[in-house]
């Protein structure tokens, strides 16, 4: 280890890369085709989900296989608010996320009674409970789901082009925002706590970090932001069903594989993972089940070869770190 000064070191290449990417993405509605734009929206939403799962698992060690609970809850609350409360859509979205965050308090309290791998399965049970309850609400279509009415959708913007634009910038905000928030968080005093927890729980307990509370707050925060993304995803789909909303494949398996293959415990990892995922998907469109089998095998391979994923392999080949989070030590 070599000590680095507390001041930010210049990282011109990586800063320029980040800046150019953001500008390109921000201008996407002006250069991308409708198909590309849709793909970007989906990718940005997946990026937000992946960053949140990574924050939870990669930094606080809480491995959840039940984040679909929050994607689905966000979606359903958003649909309920949009259809019955009369709130404008752009308000209903954050309100749904906020409500989900509130619900995450008692739910987290229950889930935290389980540890380690049992926590993982426990979160899955909770997601199933949410799914089964959602299927009981006949006002929301019960088991067969419900669509947003056209009037409600039009309230976002009357023309289709304008609607696409608004939706895209929501996705842009979610994707880029999730990266920035995680980055800022890791550079704050929270970041030190996370790193300490990740490296050694007993040691961080002894230096006075209240691990349980930090973990709990991260659980609640990621639940709320996952729900925000979930609300958006179903706004884009315009239709929600219990099976789609609480799908373990879509919102846990894919997300987990993205993070793990890209590189858990880093900001770059999920970004890399999303790029890989969407690239592979464009090739594998007609592979059917083989696509999922490939992803599963890749994730197993990563665990056997290098738990830190592709990003760690790239880093060891000399690719510079894009998001510096270490303040005192460079490993």
């Amino acid at each position: 280890m070599t000590t680095a000064p507390l001041t930010r070191r210049k990282a011109p290449v990586s800063l320029i890369a980040i800046f150019v990417t953001i500008v390109l993405l921000a201008a996407a509605p002006f250069w991308a085709s409708r198909g590309t734009l849709n793909m970007l929206m989906e990718a940005l939403a997946f990026l937000a989900l992946a960053q949140m799962w990574n924050l939870l698992a990669g930094y606080t060690g809480l491995i959840s296989v039940g984040q679909q609970a929050w994607v689905g809850l966000g979606g359903y609350l958003f649909f309920a608010l949009a259809m019955f409360s009369g709130l404008p859509l752009l308000i209903a979205l954050p309100v749904a996320a906020l409500l989900s965050g509130l619900i995450a308090f008692p739910i987290g309290w229950i889930a935290f009674r389980l540890q380690g791998a049992y926590f993982a399965i426990g979160t899955w049970v909770i997601a199933e409970v949410f799914r089964l309850i959602a299927a009981q609400f006949s006002a929301l279509g019960g088991g067969s789901g419900i669509s947003l009415s056209i009037d409600v959708v039009k309230s976002l913007a009357t023309s289709r082009g304008a609607r696409d634009m608004v939706m895209y910038y929501i996705a842009f905000g979610l994707g880029i925002g999730s990266v920035m928030i995680v980055w800022l968080m890791l550079r704050s005093k929270w970041g030190l706590a996370f790193t300490a927890i990740r490296d050694s729980e007993p040691a961080s307990e002894s230096i006075g970090i209240r691990i349980r509370r930090v973990k709990f707050m991260v659980y609640v925060a990621t639940a709320a932001s996952t729900a925000l993304t979930g609300g958006f995803i179903f706004l884009q789909k315009l239709r929600i069903t219990p099976d789609a909303a609480f799908s373990v494949n879509e919102w846990s398996a894919f997300i987990i594989f993205i993070v793990v293959i890209g590189g858990i415990g880093s900001i770059e990892g999920p970004i890399l993972g999303v790029i890989l995922f969407f690239t592979l998907r464009s090739f594998a469109a007609d592979w059917g089940s083989w696509y999922l089998i490939t992803l599963g095998a890749l994730a197993i391979g990563v665990m056997l070869v290098d738990r830190q994923g592709m990003w760690s392999i790239l880093k060891s080949r000399g690719v510079p770190v894009l998001f510096k989070t270490t303040r005192w030590f460079e490993p």
């Binding site: 698992a57 060690g61 491995i63 296989v65 791998a117 993982a120 494949n249 398996a253 987990i256 594989f257 793990v260 858990i264 999922l292 089998i293 992803l295 599963g296 095998a297 994730a299 197993i300 990563v302 665990m303 056997l304 738990r307």
Partner: peptide, 13 residues
């Protein structure tokens, strides 16, 4: 993490 992931991967496979 590794055992959870490996068996999750196995489950999907």
């Amino acid at each position: 993490l590794p055992p959870i992931l490996v068996t999750f991967g196995l489950s999907i496979i």
